[in-house]
Design a protein around this nucleic acid. Structure first.
Length: 127
DNA sequence: GTTGTGACATCGC
DNA sequence: CGCGATGCCACAA
């Protein structure tokens, strides 16, 4: 199983990802892109490359996530559970946490989207 | 050495 | 809002 674009320090990066996922409270979900943006690009990695690969790095990190990590709370930007065996189980776990799914099996990120501290920029003034 | 793939995001119509 | 196409890196066979 390819690590899919492992950063210079995959161990460190994965740890960063897991640490963030740990911070996701039950009943809320975070997206791969959101998590990727919360982690600074490792040295030697172009910002553009990181922008394109960050989310996937997060994905690969989740592929190796320990059981302690609530990987179930990590979904794609569409608020949908990624294709993968056990998705039904994941959905069930989220429902147990109070996360509601649309008829299409998607989560309303407007409601259940995790509000990370650093990902919550100050609201711009509408001049 | 080449080919294929891999838990995604974003832009355009 | 939904669908289609594109971008980018590293590892494995």
């Amino acid at each position: 199983m390819p690590s899919f674009t492992s950063p210079p320090d995959p161990i460190i990066f994965n740890h960063q990802v897991w640490e963030i996922v740990y911070q996701v409270p039950a009943g809320q979900v975070a997206t791969y892109g959101q998590i990727a943006r919360m982690i600074p690009a490792p040295e030697g990695v172009q910002a553009k490359a990181y922008a394109a690969l960050g989310p996937r790095w997060v994905g690969s990190a989740m592929a190796k996530c320990p059981e302690d990590v609530p990987w179930q709370r990590v979904v794609n930007s569409k608020g949908e559970i990624s294709l993968r065996p056990g998705a039904e189980h994941q959905r069930r776990l989220l429902e147990e946490e109070g996360v509601l799914f649309d008829e299409r099996g998607r989560i309303n990120l407007k409601i259940f989207g995790w509000k990370s501290s650093i990902d919550e920029p100050e609201q711009p003034h509408l001049l």
